[in-house]
Design a protein around this nucleic acid. Sequence first.
DNA 1: CCGAGTGTTCGATGAAAACCATACACTCCC
DNA 2: GGGAGTGTATGGTTTTCATCGAACACTCGG
Lengths: 113, 113
Amino acid sequence: MAERTSHRAAPEHTHPDDVPVLAALAALADPVRIQLVRELAGSPEWSRSCGGFDVPVGKAALSHHFAVLRGAGLVEQRDAGPKRVNRLRRAEFDARFPGLLALVLRAEPADGI
Amino acid sequence: MAERTSHRAAPEHTHPDDVPVLAALAALADPVRIQLVRELAGSPEWSRSCGGFDVPVGKAALSHHFAVLRGAGLVEQRDAGPKRVNRLRRAEFDARFPGLLALVLRAEPADGI
DNA sequence: CCGAGTGTTCGATGAAAACCATACACTCCC
DNA sequence: GGGAGTGTATGGTTTTCATCGAACACTCGG
């Protein structure tokens, strides 16, 4: 049959084209998720597992944040052994919401978030 | 002294340059405020008073939403007689967050917000 | 097969935000 | 000055969301 090696349910993804603006904005209007997106943008694709982020929340909340980012078409996930590795959907998301990712990724003038 | 005609406290404004990205995103991540911004964008400047919006909330909540929009550098308000008229800070906001307003103002592909 | 590592799900808790109804302040016009 | 129109402030309710702890699945290596 399929050449699937994992017996685990694949994570549900939403393509950026199916994401309303409101959902995209709401997904990015959170300091933890902004940090995740930024760190993800500074790393090669598929190089970061969910647990490998320096974020001040427990792993339950972290899992929830990744679900939100997936639902907003911002990240794609793939199972790699026991880990789940991530990729920022730069091109696709930027095609749907031009300039939005750039706003989040650029450094802040003063400092803050 | 001053040539002020109103004895009412002028509304506090925040310039877009002083607004963190997170605050801008949070301000726009609300369906009522998105509608306000859109209606405002489709009207001449200073032509709309706060109460003149077709929005499904009471006037207390409406006043709160305008305070949020002011704090995010999105709208400017001025007293005109008993009314308080509004203006969308298009150029200034776009200079600080290029493309963000355009994303909110463009029509949605499918329908939703 | 067992144990360590990783991520998700569940239930509950706490904080933040939206909302309303009321009361108040101000401006204008009669 | 009185009254209608307009917006803000306050207090309290409801909803939403982020978070945690604990329990559960899955993968891999010994």
